[in-house]
């Protein structure tokens, strides 16, 4: 078990290093260098040249590129991601306070997506070719094909503006904290994000269950006298969910990307909203911090997928 995991972790670290080189390179491509940006041309006077040179030396910008890279990487590893050009606050602090709301939204919607997708996919598979199957595939295809932000806007139009039932922005009404209030804020982003994800999951569950229904052990179970329901719940489901679990873990980055969009629509104070705001303000340090954070998330979810797979499938041993 150990050796396998160590190898996977090493590969992930290698990928992370490559990604960080990519990000650093992009950063270098950015128009203007940080010092020049500190000092707009119209403010320059006689002493400016000397100041710029001194500042460059102080920031290490006159070092060779690879030295700069390692300095930057060293800082990043120790949690020093620089300061926001916009607010002047530390990027790690900024990211840190946004992680919570995003994880909260993502985690719950992932859960809800599965709660929708597993029964729906199962039903579609068991009733393959019949009405329930078509209905399920219409629903899941609709979820896959409709842009989630459009659903979000539609939701705001109907439930916030026309019916006045649900708030359209934020995690809570300022100064008015209550469980009901935060639930009502959560409801729309949660359901829409979950629904968008559930389409893909439903299709996976369906095809996985259909494949398993043809397996030989199903007939063995029937020959024992297991009922149709028992065959599905006690034998097929677990086998069918093994590949699905991996796919769900692998799609974590996609759920996060979906959250970026939904957070923007509902002004949800998470990572996504921060990322879009920093893109709009060309707040490079924050963008880069977000990119690094996201890359780590991606590699972690790949590792989780591997781990889960080995945990749920007795045939795969980690040796």
């Amino acid at each position: 078990m150990g050796a396998y995991l160590v190898r996977r972790v090493l590969v992930s670290v290698l990928v992370l290093v490559l990604v960080s080189i990519g990000i650093f390179w992009l950063f270098r491509l950015a128009p203007g260098d940080p010092v020049e940006m500190m000092l707009p041309p119209q403010n320059r006077g006689p002493g400016s040249e000397a100041f710029i040179a001194a500042k460059r030396a102080e920031l290490g910008l006159d070092e060779p590129v690879w030295v700069q890279y390692f300095t930057w990487l060293g800082n990043a590893v120790t949690g020093d991601l620089g300061y926001s050009l916009d607010t002047g606050r530390s990027v790690s602090d900024l990211l840190g306070e946004r992680v919570g709301p995003t994880v909260y939204l993502m985690g719950l919607s992932l859960l809800l997506a599965l709660v929708i997708a597993v029964p729906l996919g199962l039903l579609a598979a068991v009733r393959k070719g019949r009405f329930a199957d078509y209905a399920a595939s219409v629903v899941s295809l609709g979820a896959v094909c409709t842009p989630p932000f459009f659903l979000g806007i539609l939701g705001i139009y109907v439930f916030s503006l026309k019916l006045g039932l649900l708030p359209s922005a934020g995690m809570s009404t300022p100064g008015q904290y209550s469980v009901g209030d935060s639930l009502s804020h959560l409801l729309m982003p949660l359901v829409i994000l979950a629904f968008s994800q559930s389409g893909q999951f439903t299709r996976y569950v369906r095809s996985s269950v259909i494949a398993e229904l043809h397996a030989d052990y199903v007939r063995t179970a029937e020959a024992k006298g297991v009922s149709a329901t028992g065959v599905v719940t006690r034998h097929v489901l677990r086998n069918a969910l093994i590949p699905v679990i991996t796919i769900v873990a692998l799609s974590l980055p996609n759920v996060l990307a979906g959250a970026v969009v939904i957070e923007t629509v509902f002004a949800w104070p998470g990572m996504g909203q921060l990322a879009i705001a920093s893109f709009q303000g060309r707040d490079y340090p924050v963008i880069i911090g977000f990119a690094l954070f996201f890359s780590i998330m991606v590699l972690l979810s790949n590792l989780i997928a591997d781990l889960l797979y080995t945990l749920v499938d007795p045939r795969v041993s980690l040796r």
Binding site: D216, T220, A221, I242
Partner: peptide, 11 residues
């Protein structure tokens, strides 16, 4: 059944 490799539930 014929094929004992697949006739048992693997999990």
């Amino acid at each position: 059944f014929q094929d004992p490799m697949t006739a048992l539930n693997p999990v």
